[in-house]
Write a protein that binds this DNA or RNA. Structure first.
Length: 863
RNA sequence: GCCCGCUUGGUGGAAUUGGUAGACACAAGGGACUUAAAAUCCCUCGACCUAACAGUCGUGCCGGUUCGAGUCCGGCAGCGGGCACCA
C-alpha cells in the first residue's frame, strides 16, 4: 500500500463521481454562480497535449471556485462542422457525419480519464440538428432585424474542385488540394451586418478589463477606426455620368501636396473607362490576378494606369492632376479613390517616383528649415507645420486638418466621415458539412426565409463526394421543394454557414442545452456571463469578435440578456505545448519515443535512434505538431503516469500564458513528487495508528517550536496557494505546494499537526490532482468527496510572524541581516543596526549620512 | 514596412511591482542505504577569488534617474507574435 497506483485509483474515483452526479449543475438561486468555459474542441479524433493543458486549467478554476462555494457551470461540447470531415469523406469514403460522431465518441473516451469536473449532461455537438436548427431560427430573426443581407462579393474559387477556398487554403496562388490556379469570382453571398456595431465593438473593448491587453489591442486594430474627410473632386474629360470623384482621406491637411489621384481597379469609373479602353481592361485584369498570390503580395510593386481624366483641385481650380487606376487602392475601403500626396505617404511616394510625379512637401518637421526640407526616400508622416499650402501655411497638422475640413464643408465639397477597417462578415460557404442557411429561392416570392415551423432544415444524409463541388447542389430531393409561402416550385439555398457561426453562441446554448428555443430566459439570466473563458490566442480576433457580435445580435433579437452584451467577463489565453524535435541523419523526423538519450553532460545532450543506435540530431523545442513528429499522446501519458501527473506537470513550471515545454524528465519529476505526497500521507497516517506514548513523548521533546512552525507553514501555504489560484499563477501555486510538502516531510511536529497539514495539502492540491487528493482524503477516513469540501481558510494570526528579518544595506549593498520584533519602532531599529559589527566596520567610527528604514522591507545605511 | 511583446544560472522559471536577485523545480556532481540495481534520503550547484571567513562581478548591450534598478526613463541589439498596401 505504499505505492500509489493511478491505474486503479483514478478510474475508481471517476466512476464514483459519475455515479454520484457531483458535477451536474442546475440553477440554484441560493448560491453565487460561476461559469468557467474552455474553448470547445474540434473533433479531430485524438486529443492532444494542448487540450490537456487547456482543459486542466479550466478544471483547476472550476474545482477551486466550487470549493469556494460557487455553483459552477463547466460544460463541454464539440465544434463539429468543418472541412476536415469533408476531406475525410473524399479520402476514405466515409460520411462526414459518421466520421464526426465517431471522432466525438473517441475523443470523449480520451478526455474522460483526465478526471475533469464537467457536467457531461450538457454536452452537444454543433452538427446536432437540435443545435443548428436553433441557429437557423436565429438566422431568420436576424434577417428580419436587418442584421443579415446578401450581396456580391469576390471569393477565391478553385475551378477544379468547384469550391470556394478560404484564404489559408490558397498556397502561392494555387488551390491547396487541386493545385489549380485560384480565380477570383463574384458570387452572391450572405453577410452578417457586423458593421452595425463597429463603434460599439470598439469602445466596449475598454470595458474588458479582464482580457489580455494584447487581445484588446489586436481587436482594436482589426476594427481599425479612422476619422477623415470625403472630398469631392471635379473631373475633366470624364465620361458624362462621372462629373465628380469622391475621395476619402485622413490627411486633408496635405491637399496642396497632391500630385495625382487614384482609383481602385474595381471602381465603377474604372470599369466604365475599360469599356472603351482595351489596355485598361487588361491592366484591371492583372490587378485582380496579382492580388491573391502570396509572393506578389510581398513584392508587389505599385503600378498604375494613367487615364485621360484630369482631377481639379477643389480650392484652386487652376491646378489639375492626372487620374490613375492603381493596384494598391482597395475598393472595399473608403470610397475606393484617393488623392496622392507623395511627400507624406509612403505608398504615394513609391508610386510618384515610379511615374515621375511631383513631390511637394507640405509638412515641415520641427527644427528643420523649411527651405531646405526635402522628401526623398522616406515619406514624412510626423508632426510639423504646414508649408507650400496657401492659407494653411504656418498651422500645425492638427490645426490645418480642422481648418481645411471646415472650409471644404462650408463650400459643400467635403464631408467628415469615420471609416472602419472592419467589414461585414461573409458567412456563405459552398460546402456540405455546415449549417444550412434556412432560405428559399422562389421565382414568385423571391429569396425568403424558411418558416420557423419547418426548422431544422436538416442536411440530407445520402450524399457522396465522388464528384467535385457541393453535393447539396446535386441532391434533387433536398434541393427542389415547394415554396412555404406560395406553394409553388422553389429551391433551397445550398450555401451553408461559416463554422465560426456555430462557435459564436455555443456558450449561450450551454446554459440550456435541451431547450426548445435557442436559449431560455431564466437559465441564461442566471448563468451568463461566462466568468472565465480560456483558450488559445489564435482566436484573439475572429472567434472572439464574432462572439461579441453575436451577443449583440442575440440581444437585439431577444435571445440574450442585456447584461451579456459582452459575454466573456474574463479571458485567459494559454500558451502552446512544445517539445524538442528529433531528426535522423537522413533528415527524417522521429517521434520522441523513437529516440533515447545516450549521455549527458552539463551543457550538451546526445540522442540516438532506438532502432539502430545511429545518432539523432536534437532540434529546438517548438509547438507539438504531427508533421514534425514532436508529439506525445496524452492517452499514453495517462496510461503510464496517470492523469494527475499529466495535470500536475502541465500546471507546474511554466506560467500558463506562456508556452510550456513537455519533457520526459519533467513528467517523471511530477510523477515522483505525487508518489512522495502519497508516501508521506501514508506514513503519517500509519504513524497515527501505531502511535505510542514513548514516541509521542520523544517528539514532544523536540519542542513546541517545530509544532508551531508546521502549523504556520501550513496556513501560509493556504494563503499563498489561494492567492496564486486567484491570479491564474498555477506554476507559483505549485511551487508553494512543493514547499508545503517539504515542510511536512521534514517536520517533527506532533502527529496530529502533521495529519492536519496533510489533509490541508490534499485540499490545496485537489484542483490539480483530484484523484490523489481524494484518495488521501478517503485514507484519512473522510466519507465525503474532497471536491465538495469548502476551501480551507488561513488563520490570520498564524500567517503573521512575530519577528521580522531586515536585510541591512550599506549604500545599497546588503552587508548584514537583523532580526527584530515586528512592531519595533524605527528609532530602535536604527540603534540596533548601528551596533551591528559589520556596519560598525563600514562606518569606521564616523556617522552615517542617512539611514533609510522601509517598514517591513529593508534598512539602508548611507555613508 | 507598421504595431505589440519578450530577453534573469547548464534548463524551466521566481522576485510581494523600486527594497536580500536566482524561490520552487529540472539537469549535473558528490555521499548514505543496498551483495547489486531500482526506489528513497542527505549535501553541493551564477561567475571570479579564497584553505576558510570575507570580498569582487553579475538580470541582452550602452547611458540616465534614485539612498537603492531585473523592475522606472532614453538609445541600441537579438528573439517572438499580430497585420498586410485601410488612404
Amino acid at each position: 500500500m505504499d505505492r500509489y497506483n493511478s491505474r486503479e485509483i483514478e478510474p475508481k474515483w471517476q466512476k464514483r463521481w459519475e455515479e454520484s452526479e457531483i458535477f451536474k449543475t442546475d440553477v440554484d438561486l441560493s448560491k453565487p454562480k460561476y461559469y468557467v468555459l474552455e474553448m470547445f474542441p474540434y473533433p479531430s479524433g485524438r486529443i492532444h497535449m494542448g487540450h490537456v493543458r487547456n482543459y486542466t486549467m479550466g478544471d483547476v478554476v472550476a474545482r477551486y471556485k466550487s470549493a469556494q462555494g460557487f455553483n459552477v457551470l463547466h460544460p463541454m461540447g464539440w465544434d463539429a462542422f468543418g472541412m476536415p470531415a469533408e476531406n475525410a469523406a473524399m479520402e476514405n469514403k466515409v460520411h462526414p457525419g459518421d466520421w464526426t460522431y465517431q471522432n466525438i465518441h473517441d475523443m470523449r473516451e480520451q478526455l474522460k480519464p483526465l478526471g475533469l469536473s464537467i457536467d457531461w449532461g450538457r454536452e452537444f455537438a454543433t452538427c446536432d440538428p437540435e443545435y443548428y436548427g436553433h441557429q437557423q431560427s436565429m438566422f431568420i430573426d436576424m434577417l428580419e432585424a436587418g442584421l443579415v443581407y446578401r450581396k456580391n462579393a469576390t471569393v477565391n474559387w478553385d475551378p477544379i474542385d468547384l469550391t470556394v477556398l478560404a484564404n489559408e487554403q490558397v498556397e502561392n496562388g494555387l488551390g491547396w488540394r487541386s493545385g489549380a490556379v485560384v480565380e477570383r469570382k463574384e458570387l452572391t453571398q450572405w453577410f452578417f451586418k457586423i458593421s452595425r456595431y463597429s463603434e460599439d465593438l470598439l469602445v466596449s473593448i475598454d470595458k474588458l478589463n479582464n482580457w489580455p491587453d494584447k487581445v484588446r489591442l489586436m481587436q482594436k486594430n482589426w476594427i481599425g477606426k479612422s476619422k477623415g474627410l470625403e472630398i469631392d473632386f471635379e473631373l475633366q474629360n470624364a465620361p458624362s455620368k462621372y462629373t465628380k470623384l469622391k475621395v476619402y482621406t485622413t490627411r486633408p491637411d496635405t491637399i496642396f501636396g497632391m500630385s495625382f489621384a487614384g482609383i481602385s481597379a474595381d471602381h465603377p469609373l474604372a470599369s466604365e473607362l475599360a469599356k472603351e479602353d482595351k489596355e485598361l481592361a487588361e491592366f484591371i485584369n492583372i490587378c485582380r490576378k496579382t492580388a491573391t498570390t502570396e509572393e506578389a503580395l510581398e513584392t508587389t510593386e505599385k503600378i498604375g494606369y494613367a487615364t485621360p481624366i484630369r482631377v481639379v483641385n477643389p480650392l484652386d481650380k487652376t491646378k489639375t492632376y492626372p487620374l490613375y487606376v492603381a493596384n494598391f487602392i482597395l475598393m472595399g475601403y473608403g470610397t475606393g479613390a484617393i488623392f496622392g500626396c507623395p511627400a507624406h505617404d509612403q505608398r504615394d511616394l513609391d508610386f510618384a517616383q515610379k511615374y515621375n510625379l511631383k513631390i511637394i512637401p507640405v509638412v515641415c518637421p520641427p527644427d528643420i528649415n523649411e527651405n531646405s526640407f526635402k522628401v526623398e526616400k522616406d515619406a514624412y508622416t510626423g508632426p510639423g507645420h504646414i508649408i507650400n499650402s496657401e492659407f494653411l501655411n504656418g498651422l500645425s497638422v492638427n490645426e490645418a486638418k480642422v481648418l481645411i475640413s471646415k472650409t471644404l464643408q462650408e463650400k459643400g465639397l467635403g464631408l467628415e466621415k469615420t471609416n472602419y477597417r472592419l467589414r461585414d462578415w461573409g458567412i456563405s460557404r459552398q460546402r456540405y458539412w455546415g449549417c444550412p442557411i434556412p432560405v428559399i429561392h422562389c421565382p414568385k416570392c423571391g429569396t425568403i426565409p424558411e418558416k420557423k415551423k419547418n426548422l431544422p432544415i436538416v442536411l440530407p444524409h445520402d450524399v457522396n463526394f465522388d464528384q467535385p463541388g457541393n453535393p447539396l447542389n446535386r441532391h434533387k430531393d433536398w434541393l427542389n421543394i415547394t415554396c412555404s409561402e406560395c406553394g409553388g416550385k422553389a429551391k433551397r439555398e445550398t450555401d451553408t454557414m461559416d463554422t465560426f457561426v456555430d462557435s459564436s453562441w455555443y456558450f449561450a446554448r450551454f446554459t440550456s442545452p435541451k431547450a426548445n428555443t435557442p436559449t431560455l430566459k431564466n437559465e441564461i439570466d442566471y448563468w451568463m456571463n461566462v466568468d472565465q473563458y480560456i483558450g488559445g490566442v489564435e482566436h484573439a480576433i475572429l472567434h472572439l469578435l464574432y462572439s461579441r457580435f453575436f451577443a449583440r445580435a442575440m440581444q437585439e433579437t431577444g435571445h440574450m440578456p442585456k447584461k451579456a452584451i459582452e459575454p466573456f467577463d474574463a479571458l485567459f489565453t494559454q500558451g502552446m505545448v512544445c517539445h524538442e524535435t528529433y531528426r535522423d541523419q537522413g533528415g527524417n523526423w522521429l517521434l520522441p519515443n523513437e529516440v533515447k538519450e545516450e549521455k549527458k553532460s552539463k551543457t550538451k545532450r546526445y540522442f540516438v535512434n532506438l532502432k539502430n543506435n545511429s545518432p539523432v540530431e536534437v532540434g529546438p523545442s517548438i509547438k507539438m505538431s504531427k508533421s514534425k513528429k514532436n508529439v506525445v499522446d496524452p492517452t499514453d501519458i495517462i496510461e503510464q503516469f496517470g492523469a494527475d501527473t499529466a495535470r500536475w506537470f502541465m500546471m507546474s513550471d511554466s506560467p500558463p500564458e506562456r508556452d510550456v515545454e513537455w519533457t520526459t524528465a519533467g513528467v517523471e519529476a511530477a510523477w515522483r513528487h505525487l508518489q512522495k505526497v502519497w508516501r508521506i500521507s501514508f506514513k503519517i497516517y500509519s504513524e497515527g495508528l501505531t502511535e505510542n506514548n514513548k514516541k509521542e513523548e520523544k517528539i514532544a521533546l523536540n519542542g513546541e517550536i517545530n509544532h508551531d512552525k508546521l502549523l504556520r507553514d501550513t496556513h501560509k501555504s493556504i494563503d499563498n496557494v489561494t492567492k496564486c489560484l486567484e491570479n491564474f499563477s498555477f506554476n507559483k501555486a505549485i511551487a508553494h505546494l512543493y514547499e508545503l510538502t517539504n515542510a511536512i516531510s521534514n517536520s517533527k511536529a506532533k502527529i496530529l499537526t502533521r495529519q492536519y497539514s496533510i489533509k490541508i495539502l490534499a485540499q490545496l492540491m485537489q484542483p490539480v490532482t483530484p484523484h490523489l487528493s481524494q484518495e488521501i482524503w478517503s485514507l484519512y477516513g473522510s466519507p465525503s468527496f474532497i471536491s465538495s469540501e469548502p476551501w480551507p481558510q488561513p488563520i490570520t494570526n498564524l500567517i503573521e510572524d512575530e519577528d521580522l528579518t531586515y536585510p541591512v544595506q550599506v549604500n545599497g549593498k546588503k552587508r548584514a541581516e537583523i532580526v527584530v520584533p515586528v512592531d519595533l519602532d524605527a528609532e530602535a531599529i536604527e540603534t540596533k543596526v548601528l551596533l551591528l559589527p559589520q556596519i560598525k566596520n563600514f562606518l569606521n567610527g564616523s556617522k552615517p549620512k542617512k539611514i533609510i528604514i522601509v517598514r517591513g522591507r529593508i534598512v539602508n545605511v548611507v555613508i
